[in-house]
């Protein structure tokens, strides 16, 4: 189903827990990372590997906001909107991104390059406002800085 590297990681995760099903969260992450979203095939495959029913994997996928069953997009812009960031201008950053990309939070640009999300605390209050792009943090943001960041993304 997945690349040999991902399969090896899945094997290791399953071996790590006394109950197979405990490995469900990291395995869904691996599947999403490799395929850009959580596919139905992946759900069935994971259910099979963990001796679960597909609906039991589906419950988990639909529960957590960090799993996506539709294309995430190449760059997932996650703007923190919790207290410190909000006080330091997160709303302005989101508004700027909405205007620049022409999408609302929860949407993807038509070219599939950007997904915009508002997320809860990223744990970096000292450097608010903060945005996470895929797995990288960008701190002390201003609208100008955001423009610069987007321009430099490959």
């Amino acid at each position: 189903m997945f690349s040999p590297q991902t399969e090896a990681k899945i094997d290791a995760l399953i071996a790590k827990y006394p109950y197979k099903r405990s490995a469900i969260l990291p395995i869904i992450h691996l599947a999403q990372l490799e395929q850009g979203k959580v596919t139905e095939e992946a759900i069935h495959y994971i259910a099979d590997r963990l001796d679960l029913e597909p609906v039991e994997v589906y419950e988990v996928v639909t529960f957590y906001s960090m799993y996506f069953m539709e294309e995430i997009g190449k760059y997932h812009l996650q703007v923190c909107r919790t207290l410190s960031c909000m006080l330091c201008g997160a709303e302005e950053i989101t508004a700027h991104l909405e205007k620049k990309l022409g999408i609302k939070p929860g949407q993807v640009t038509p070219d599939g390059r950007f997904r915009l999300s508002e997320v809860e605390c990223l744990g970096s209050c000292a450097t608010a406002p903060v945005m996470q792009v895929n797995f990288d943090y960008y701190e002390n943001l201003t609208p100008e800085k955001v423009d610069e960041i987007l321009k430099n993304l490959p």
């Binding site: 029913e53 609906v55 529960f63 957590y64």
Partner: peptide, 9 residues
């Protein structure tokens, strides 16, 4: 049978 689940949140 395990046919039902809690979907969404």
């Amino acid at each position: 049978v395990h046919a039902l689940g809690r979907i969404f949140r």
